[in-house]
Nucleic acid binder design. Structure first.
Lengths: 337, 337
DNA sequence: CGGATGCGTGGAAACGTTTCCAGAAGGAGG
DNA sequence: CCTCCTTCTGGAAACGTTTCCACGCATCCG
C-alpha cells in the first residue's frame, strides 16, 4: 500500500539502516549515497511513518489539548498559544472539546493516554479522577483554571485577583458605592478567586460588601442573561456592574440596552476578559485583559520542556486593566426603570 | 517504562493473544479468563498503545485539520463542527494553523502525511503543490474555500453567491442605489464568488455596477480598516456598505463611528458572516449567516466515511440573511463629512 | 610494515500490537 | 471407543522504524 523504508532502500541500492540515517541525520553517510537515497525517496514519494517511528523510540511526542469549547474567544486564543509553542518545538497537537461535560472529558483524556502523548494541556471542567492518571502517565498542565483534588499538577493561571482588584478600585475611584458583581458562586458554593478578590478589594477600600448584589450565575448565555436581567430590572440603586466573564458582560450589555439604560450614564459596565467585541461595543467596554495566548504558550512549553518545573505552580501571568468608555461616575440612584 | 500487553498477560496468567482479544472483542474468550484479564489490566493501569495498534493494521485513522487561524469566530465554529463529527466517528483530530502562510501550510500537510492520517480537512490558503500529494496519500476535503489547481478534491462551501444576492437585493429594496462593496479583488485580480454575485445581482436589478465603489481589501484588520476609512471619508454619496467578511464589517463599523456617521440613518452597513458581536453592536448588524458548524461537520464526515463521494463537489450549504437593525432607507447624499 | 583508528555500510533485534494458525480440551455422534 | 467438531487458548509472524553491533576498507602513526 504505502511506500516504506525498504522500498527506498531497494530503489537506492542501499540498506534500510542507511536510509534511516539519511532521514534522521543520526550517523555518517557518504555524500553520494545520501544523494541517491534522497532521489529514490523523492521519486517514490516516501514519507517516514510517524507511528512506527514512535513505536521504536520513546512515546513519540505530541501534545493533547482539552478545552470546554472553541467558540469562546479566550479559549481560542489560548489554543493558538499552545499550537504556536508546539509548532516551535516540533510537536503536533491533538485537540478535543469537553463541552463542559466531565464524563466526556474523562473519555478524551483516556484516548489521549492511549496515544502516548508526551503531555496534556487542559482547561479542566471535571474533578480529579481522570487527571490523576493522566498526571502519572504523561506530563499534565492545567491552564486558566485547575481541577480540584489533583495535587502536584501545575496550573498556568492569569492573575485574576489583581485584575479584579484593579477593576474594583477603578470603579470605586469613580465614585461607585453600589457595585454589583455578576457571576458569583451559587448560594452555599465556594466563591472563586475573582469573587474573593472583589470582596477583599471592597473591604480594603473600607466599603461594605453588598451581599445582595453578588449575583450568582453560571458562565453560559442563558444563566448570564437571566442573572443580568434579574439584577438590572429589580435593583435601581446599582450604579456599576462588574461582570466576572465575557459572557456575563455580554448579557449585561444586552440587558442594559433592552432596558434603555445608557452606558455609562445610567450604569457603568466592566468585565473580566477582553474579547474582540469589547472594542466594537458602543461604548467600548472596559475590561480586564488576560494574556490568553501567552498562557497557552507557557502551558505548552511547561509540559514539553520543563518536566523539572512541573510540580511547582508557576507565577500567575499579569492581567491588565484596559480602560475604555463604558464606565463613568455614578449618577445617583436611578428613578424607576 | 509503560505497561504493555505482555505485562497484563503475565499478570493474568494468559497469553498475549488472549489479552488482545479481550480488548478488541475479536475472538471467543471464556468469561472467567476475560474477568482475570480485565482485573490485571485495571490493576496495572494498562492502556493499549495507539501507535503499535495502528502500525499493525491500517493507517491508524485520525483527521488532520488545517486552518489559517482560530481567533476568527467562523474558523473556530468550523473547527467545532469537525471535532464533533470526528468524536461521533471515534476518530481523533490533529490540528495546526497556517497563519495564512503557504509555506507553513505545506509543512503542516507534510507532517500530517507522515502521521498516516485517514483524512485531512483544510481551509487552504496556499496553492496546489502540497495539496496534490495530500489528495493522493489521504482523503482530502476543502472547507469554506478551495485551493486552485487541485482537481478532484471536493469542497464544502457555503452558498455565498445566494447570500450576497439576497443581501444586495435587500439593500436595493430599501432604496439604496450607491452601494459600496468592501473586499473586492485587487485591481487586475480575479473577482471571487461573492464579488461576482454582487455584480450579477445589481445587473439583474437593472442597476449599474459602480466600479469605483468596489473597494479592494484583504481580509485582515489593517487592510480592512484602511479600505473602510478611504471609502467613507471620500465618498459622501455612498448610502450603504456591503462588507464581504466580518473583519471588513468590523472596520466599517469602527470607521463609521469615528466619522460620527449614524447607522443606519447616515449609512447602512451589512456584512457576510454572522459573528457573535454582530448582535452586540449598536445597532445590531444585519449579516449573512454561513453555517460554519455544519460545514465543518460535513467536511469531516465526507473525508472519513464517504470516500466514494469524494470527487463530486457537494451542494453548497445555504447561507441565510439575518436582518437586524443596521440597514435602513437611504437618506440621500450626505452633506460634507 | 603492522596494528590501531576511523568512517561508511548492512544485518538484525526490538518496540507493542493484531491476527493467523495450530493445539488442547471436551462433548456429541458414529 | 474412536473420531470429529466446537470452543478456548497460546505461539509466532508481521507491521515500519531506530539503533546496536559487526564488518570491510582506507588512513595514519609508530
Amino acid at each position: 500500500m504505502s511506500v516504506t523504508i525498504k522500498d527506498v532502500a531497494a530503489g537506492a541500492g542501499v540498506g534500510i539502516a542507511t536510509v534511516s540515517r539519511v532521514f534522521n541525520g543520526s550517523g555518517p553517510v557518504g555524500a553520494a549515497t545520501r544523494e541517491r537515497v534522497l532521489a529514490a525517496a523523492r521519486e517514490l514519494g516516501y514519507r517516514p511513518s510517524a507511528g512506527a517511528r514512535s513505536l521504536r523510540g520513546r512515546g513519540g511526542g505530541g501534545v493533547g489539548l482539552v478545552l470546554p469549547d472553541l467558540t469562546d474567544p479566550f479559549a481560542a486564543e489560548l489554543a493558538e498559544g499552545v499550537l504556536a509553542a508546539a509548532r516551535d518545538l516540533g510537536e503536533h497537537v491533538v485537540i478535543d472539546l469537553s463541552g463542559g461535560d466531565a464524563a466526556r472529558e474523562a473519555a478524551i483524556v483516556g484516548r489521549f493516554l492511549e496515544r502516548r502523548l508526551e503531555g496534556v494541556v487542559a482547561v479542566p471542567c471535571g474533578e480529579s479522577a481522570p487527571w490523576a492518571e493522566a498526571a502519572r502517565a504523561a506530563g499534565l498542565v492545567f491552564a486558566e483554571r485547575v481541577a480540584r483534588g489533583v495535587p502536584g499538577v501545575p496550573g498556568v493561571l492569569a492573575d485574576d485577583a489583581t485584575g479584579v482588584r484593579h477593576l474594583t478600585e477603578y470603579l470605586a475611584g469613580l465614585g461607585h458605592r453600589r457595585i454589583a458583581y455578576l457571576g458569583a458562586a451559587a448560594p452555599g458554593g465556594e466563591p472563586d478567586v475573582r469573587e474573593r478578590a472583589f470582596r477583599a478589594a471592597l473591604t480594603r477600600l473600607g466599603l461594605a460588601v453588598p451581599e445582595s448584589l453578588l449575583v450568582p450565575a453560571r458562565p453560559n448565555r442563558d444563566s448570564a442573561y437571566a442573572a443580568a436581567a434579574g439584577l438590572l430590572q429589580s435593583r435601581d440603586d446599582v450604579t456599576a456592574v462588574l461582570a466576572a466573564g465575557h459572557l456575563l458582560g455580554e448579557a449585561a450589555v444586552l440587558v442594559a440596552r433592552e432596558l434603555d439604560l445608557r452606558v455609562p450614564a445610567d450604569v457603568s459596565i466592566a468585565m473580566v476578559d477582553d474579547v474582540p467585541w469589547a472594542e466594537l461595543c458602543d461604548p467600548p467596554l472596559t475590561a480586564v485583559a488576560r494574556p490568553a495566548r501567552a498562557m497557552g504558550r507557557r502551558a505548552c512549553e511547561l509540559v514539553l520542556r520543563d518536566p523539572a518545573r512541573r510540580g511547582h505552580a508557576p507565577e500567575p501571568l499579569p492581567a491588565e486593566l484596559v480602560v475604555r468608555g463604558s464606565c463613568g461616575p455614578p449618577r445617583g440612584a436611578r428613578a424607576g426603570r
